[in-house]
Amino acid sequence: MNSSYILRRVGYGLVLMLGVVVLNFLLIRLAPGDPAMVIAGEMGGATEEMLESIREEYGLNKPLVVQLGIYVGNVLQGNLGESFFFNQPVASLIAQRIGPTILLVITAQILSILIGVFLGVIAARKPNGVMSGFVSVFATIGYAVPVFWTGIMLIILFASVFPIFPVEGMQSVRLRGADVFTKTLDIAHHLILPAFTLAIIYLAQYARLSRASMLEVLGSDYIRTARAKGAAEKTVLFKHALRNAALPILTVAGLQFGNLISGALLVETVFNWPGMGRLAFDSILRRDYPTIMGVLFFASAMVVVANILTDISYRWADPRLRGKS
């Protein structure tokens, strides 16, 4: 793996992020509604002079291109602006919330890939077997059911009928003074339901995809070679076949990461998870432009990073891609 390749990918990523900043800004400004009204509304009734002074204060009366220039300049200096609603820097609002979101999204991604791929491989062993049928049915259901519905059903099942998981939040209040280990366990306990809810839809997709990918690979000549060497079936499946079947799975995993973040928004809302998704949801309702743009900025950054990691893992998985750019 050459580092110049990684550097080049990171460079592309930065250019892409700049484009994202500009696009975010323009998209938000295209939306109808006047933020000055919203800000004023929070403070009570507003006269035209008040609105005008708010526009003056927040720079909303300047030409759009000038506003864009100011915003991009600020972002480049690490300043994402101040929230209209919280009167706090957007960066610090996000900093408080990005951790839980990353934890949720990455746990869901890992769960869905591990379980999904495992189910897919098992199904591919006997393409007409019971497991294969189960995976197909499960995948269809998982894909068709909306994520908030799954969340609510899981809450009913595991919080009311079998109360084994907490319904909401990320930490128990009563553990405030507990040691790190207890706290970690507590967070993990809170994490299971939301992460699984978010994982289900993608888990089903990975199961189907890896089943199809494995079936194709298992028909290859080199699989016959592995068997002819005397390799055990599980070695053939998980070593020789899976590594080759991983390429389409990695591709989809990279592409899905963006969807996973938008899915996290709904899951965070259902489970009252203190993450960026809730902030985005509330900020959209409040027309809190700087916060929305800040959230979009970080969400895009996560997608860009995920894609860079996908490209790098591609070259790890397939030596034929190394040495080409």
Binding site: S220, D221, Y222, R224, T225, A226, A228, H240, R243, N244, A317, D318, P319, R320
Partner: peptide, 12 residues
Amino acid sequence: FQEPMTSLNPVF
């Protein structure tokens, strides 16, 4: 085997 081009595992 007949096909040396495809009989070896490409990732090892």
